[in-house]
Every structure is written in structure tokens, then in C-alpha cells.
Design a protein around this nucleic acid. Sequence first.
RNA 1: GCGCCCAUGGCUCAGCUGGAUAGAGCGACGGUUUGCGGUACCGUAGGUCGGAGGUUCGAGUCCUCCUGGGCGCGCCA
Length: 554
Amino acid sequence: MKTVIKEIIICALDRAKRAGELELGNPPDVVIEKPKDEKMGDFATNVAMTLARKERKNPKVIAAIISRHMETGVAGLDSVEIAGPGFLNLKMSPSFFLNRLTDAVQQRNDFGKSSVGQGIKILIEFVSANPTGPLHIGHGRGAAVGDTLARILKKAGYDLSTEYYVNDVGNQMNTLGRSTWLRYLELLGRTKEFPKDHYRGEYIKDIAQSVIDQQGNEFLDKSEEECVPFFREIAKEKILEGIRQDLSDFRVTFDNWFSEQSLYEDNSVERAIEWLRDKGHIYDKDGAVWLKSSAFDDDKDRVIVKQTGEKTYFCSDIAYHQNKIKRGFKKLINLMGADHHGYVPRMEAVLQAMDYDKNIFKILLIQFVSLLRGGKKVSMSTRSGEFETLSDVVSEVGVDAARYFFLMRSSDAHLDFDLELAKQETPENPVFYIQYAHARICSIFRGSKDKGIQFPENTNVDLSPLVEEEEYSIIKAILTFPEVVEKSALALEVHRISHYLLDLVSRFHGYYSRHRVISDDIPLTLARLYLLDGLRVTIRNGFDLMGISVPEKM
RNA sequence: GCGCCCAUGGCUCAGCUGGAUAGAGCGACGGUUUGCGGUACCGUAGGUCGGAGGUUCGAGUCCUCCUGGGCGCGCCA
């Protein structure tokens, strides 16, 4: 919608230039915004102010020149006014908005789509939790944000893929296997000391029990060396299965699950090291192999092969990201918990060492979540293994509320997740407030049907009976949806959608309480139903992006 | 010590590449309904945008310093 307005301004600037009234060396970047107050107009621009310096003219003078070159009555433009320090406020004709509402409604599920992404191939990697235990609440936030971001980017026209990187290599996996084996022995009455740094969660005992159920005491008298590999594999599989299940219950799916192990199996890791060595980014010191990451803004160099000959996690990550780029992705987005932020510079260093533009790589840090119950913090004692799991939270508050709460705040701000509030079915709970609006609209449609009013599904309705200021304010709000999606995509910010929907829906509730939709005035009724249809489409599309359901009845 | 994130009414947060008089919700106080879902609506009070400088036509937004809180700084992943 704003692009249309932009055209109008650019056109006027062009005319002013040809008339010799403005210099306009480089075409200015025209920014269209909403006036402070709706009464001032429908759109505003500050071009006159941004041009003031270059043109060496008073902003108000420039504004006057531009406005003189704008044609009212054309392209839906009703009037132009100069306001404040040099704003141009534009008023549009009613038909301008009504036509666009019709477009929006007809697009149905596609409303909100755009092409800013230009089909660019993007890979977004998120969650990627180690397969050593169930997903906790922090992973949940990452999952919700990553999944929603993926949906938003797709809607904005990117060619998007999602991936989960499985860290199925390394010490932690052996520790996992050993933990399970020890629990197995314990369950069979042969207690050994359980080391502090091993995985103590109940889920380990469950896995050990399942081994007993299926294979009895077969491993009771075998050596540790014989047992650990077996227990490692079975535990990994069970846990991964659980993670997949938790995620799918949470409406999060991945296009690909990428195994770290596979990078060793096909020698990618070796090749990446050799490649970097040839380029001179690697050196040997103290019996270890180091990457000269300090040459690229990292604090210090990093070990990629330990004295023991084992590769570090960071080492396979180099191969992994090289692999991503080789698969043709033009932009890589990684979501990580904020506690890993120290990892950012070294990853950026890797990309640069490989001669890639570091701007193709974007790490989004997701800040911590605090669970609250009745305003009080729920303590998370990870030491005992009794932390709040994602699945516990989801089963307590439901997927819709959980996703909404994870998505309602800017990702780089700490999140207070109030379990009690999330469960409430009252307007204080924004999820229900929005869902309620949708259900209410659906209810009105049911009511109109009962009254025998035929709402034409696929044809246009005469919208001229819509004359109320509130109706236009709702229409305008609906029409900004594509811009919200676009901006969310460009800024990689998911919380904008929830804020937008909340605002949209509160306009509707206010309107509803002051105006009747269904009345004896059939043309008016149809026009208002059409407006509500637009609202319904927008709410649904917005919640689709967030992965939240839109019930027709509650 | 170094680095990253955060700081906006009593509480939880918005504030879109710097723009017009800083906005919501909750809580508080006061109202609204014999009509489509009151699981709703309307109004009032409440702010030196953590502090101090700076950049400019203009700063909650950008820069510097400081304070307070969170998180990192492994041949762990």
C-alpha cells in the first residue's frame, strides 16, 4: 500500500525537478509513515525535511513545491497538507481504501505475502539442542522463534529451509552412554558410583529401564568398553525421538536434520582443515592445531584439534557451515541461546577465513526465559536434572499460549513467562483476546446465516455503505499487515506480529461494541460482513505465521 | 578485567532505517448492557524514557562515559 503512496511522491518530485524547482542529484529515499494523529491524514512523508540540507532550502518551502506538483483527484489522492516542520500529510479517497480491502480479502491465505525476499535461498538453523536430554523451556523459545521466523521469511518471498544440527559426536555422547549404562546396572541392583558430571535426569533411568525390558540383563556382566557404545546409541536415538516428538507437538518441523557425525564420515572435517591450512589460517602450537581467528576480530585464536587428536566442536562447525554454503544457501541464519554469544565472533571469523562475506551470516541470540507462577519465579535446578521441560509447559498451558508467549517479546529481551496468565481464558491473556475476536467474528457470520442473509463468498460486495471513521481505521489497520510481515522479515523480528494483531483486534472489539453488524439494512450488513471477513482473514494469516490456531468457537 | 544483551508510568512491555504532543495491557479509581459471544467496551489518574555529556533542524532511538541487572570469556558442547 505504501508503495503506491511512494509512487505519488516520487512522481511529484520528478515534476518539480523538471520544472527546475528542485535540484535532486540522487533520488532521495522516500519514507512513508503514518501521521501522528489519524486526523492529520492517512499518510505522511518527511522528504522535504531530509532534502532541506542538500537543496539548501527551508523544509517548508520544499514541501510547498512538492505539494504543488501533486495531483489531487488522481490515484486516490484527495488532499495534501503541509504540517509541522515540513511534513507532507496526504489524505486519500475512501475508494482508495475500499479497493485495497477488496484485494486483500480476495487474496485469502495469500494476503500478507510479498516478494521482498526475491526468492533468495536462506537456511535457518535453530534449536540444535544436544541429544543428551529433553528440550527445556529455553529451547522452546528458540523453537517458536525459529519456526515463526521461517514462516515469516517464506511469506516475504524467500526460498527458505530449516535445519536442526545434531551434535551426535564427542565426549558428551560417551558420557550419555555411560550415564545410561550406570543406571542400567543400578536398576539391576549393582550400584556403582554415579559421577557428578553425568546426566542425572529421570529420563536416563527410563531409557535404562527400556533396555532391561527389551534385552534383560544381557549387559550386566559385560565390560564398560563393550557396553558404553551400545548405551550411547540407544540413548541418543531415544532422546532424539523424544525431541522430535516434543517439537512436532509444538508444531515445529524441520526440512532437514543434519548429523555432525556425517561430517566426519565423509571427511568434510578433514578437508575443511586442509583447506584452511592451505590458506594459511591454521598453525600448530603446544601439540594442538589452532585457527587464527584473532585475525578476524575474535579475541583469541581457537583450538580446532586438541592435543589428544580429537577435533573440537568448533572444528566440525567449520565444516558444517562450509557445507551449508556449498549447498547453495546465500544467507545463513542461526538461532542460539544468548549464553552462547561468545561463539559469535569466532563463527564470523570462520566465514571470513573462508573468504565469504560475513554479512551472509547472521546469528540471532535468544535471551533467557524465566518461568513465573503467580508472579514468582520458578527455580530451575538443572543440577538435579529436574528442570522445566518444554513438554511440561506445553501440557500445562497448551501449544497456542506457549507459542504466543515465546513470540510476544523481542528476542533480545529477557522473557517472563507467567504460567498462570498463559492458562487464563480472560482478556488479560492476549492469546485468548485475539482468538476470542476471531471466534466472535465467526459467530456473527453464523448469526447472519441464521437470519437468511446470503454473504457472497467469491464476489465483490458494494462497500460504499462503510462510512464510519472506525471502519476506515480498521481497514487501514488490515492493510498494513503486509508491511508488518515485510518488516518482521527484514528485521528478523517475530514479536511485531503479535503486537500488530493485538492492536488490530482491539480496534475490532471497540467497533463491535458500538456498531451492529447485522441489521435490517441489507447493503450495510453485507458491507460490514465483508469488513469482518477481511479481519478474519488477517487474524488467521497472522496467527498462521505464529503457528497458533484460530478457533471458530471457544 | 574484557565482551555481548537489557534499563521507558506501581507491574509487564511497544515505540518500525532519528521525526510531529512517548503508547498499550495489567493493577488502581470511576462508568457502560432487556439487541450479533460482557471471555467485551469507555473514561480518569500515573513519565525529568537509569544518570551525565555529545552529534543536528530534530534523540527513547545514534556516539562516549558512568550506574544497576543478566550472560559469557575452556584443548566443553
